[in-house]
């Protein structure tokens, strides 16, 4: 395995471990109560007490960033799991049945693609009011067609393999083949895709929260911290830097990891239909 220890993998794994670790740590410990305000101590510079200073309401920036990391990871995890499992199921189904079923599923996936996540989230939050769940559902929703396509593309390749033909000749049904032969063989590209989608989900959550459609106060979010920092850029530019760096580190970590995993698994499998 040592030949796979590329810088991508190492850096990706380290960043992911760091972000996930910090997010997990925030469950039990943060340097300060992330919601505790002290308006007289606003915009404090970095110090021994506040390692990265305080924000416009005098809250500790490090604690805010830590809790935001947890929120961001949670949203991404739920959204990718939800969208991924539905998408994979549809992709397998489309590939197994072919014909008009495949066509229908892919057409519906097209409609899914046709709604940019942002428009979907805007419509959802207009109807239900903005919340973290709107962000989760919007991101999960856009993941369904992505996974359906990846799965179906990879599965279509497997269906042409000799051992699948052999299984069919042996009288095994389409669903049984999907379960026994196709699913294990599409697992690699799906996991790779999931890692990459995780990165995209973090970005999407940040964008939605930036536009006010995601996490609601006082629950901190990197995106919302940035939108709040935007008017303060002249006064406290550091507040516009830290959350951006956090997003970058998290997204970079997951996409490097995804990349490295893609290199480890057979790259030819993921080539045919990247989403």
């Amino acid at each position: 395995m040592s030949r796979h220890l590329t810088p991508n993998l190492v850096l990706g794994a380290v960043l992911v471990a760091f972000v996930v670790g910090v997010a997990a740590l925030s469950l039990v410990w943060t340097p300060h109560d992330h919601a505790a305000m002290n308006i007289r101590a606003r915009f404090a510079p970095a110090s021994d007490i506040h390692w990265l200073g305080t924000d416009q309401l005098g809250r500790d920036v490090v604690s805010q960033l830590m809790v935001a990391a947890r929120n961001s990871m949670t949203v991404a995890l739920i959204a990718v799991l939800m969208g991924g499992s539905i998408g994979v199921a549809f992709g397998l189904l489309a590939s197994a049945l072919g014909g008009w079923v495949e066509d229908l599923i892919m057409r519906v996936a097209d409609i899914g693609f046709a709604f940019p996540a942002l428009l979907f989230a805007i419509m959802l939050s207009a109807v239900f009011g903005p919340s973290l769940w709107v962000a989760v559902f919007a991101i999960a929703f856009i993941n369904i067609p992505v996974f359906a396509r990846v799965t179906r593309g990879a599965a279509n390749v497997i269906w042409t393999r000799d051992y699948v033909a052999a299984a069919r000749a042996a009288g095994q049904g389409r669903f049984a083949i999907s379960r026994d032969h196709i699913l294990p063989n599409v697992a690699a590209p799906v996991i790779v895709q999931a890692t990459i989608e995780f990165a995209i989900a973090i970005l999407a959550e940040a964008a939605l929260s930036y536009l006010g459609l995601g996490a609601q106060p006082p629950s901190p979010s990197w995106g919302r911290m940035l939108s709040e920092a935007q008017t303060l850029m002249f006064m406290a530019p550091q507040l516009a830097i830290y959350p951006g760096l956090c997003i970058m580190a998290a997204v970079l970590g997951f996409s490097l990891l995804g990349d490295a995993l893609r290199d480890i698994t057979d790259p030819r499998l993921t080539r045919s239909r990247q989403a």
């Binding site: 002249f234 516009a240 997204v251």
Partner: peptide, 21 residues
């Protein structure tokens, strides 16, 4: 990789800060 990891709105904020302000 870095480009992929940077949200476009943050890139926009940084660009405004640097080139406009």
């Amino acid at each position: 990789q870095i480009g992929i990891a940077v949200p476009s709105f943050w890139a926009a904020m940084l660009l405004v800060l640097l080139f406009a302000v």
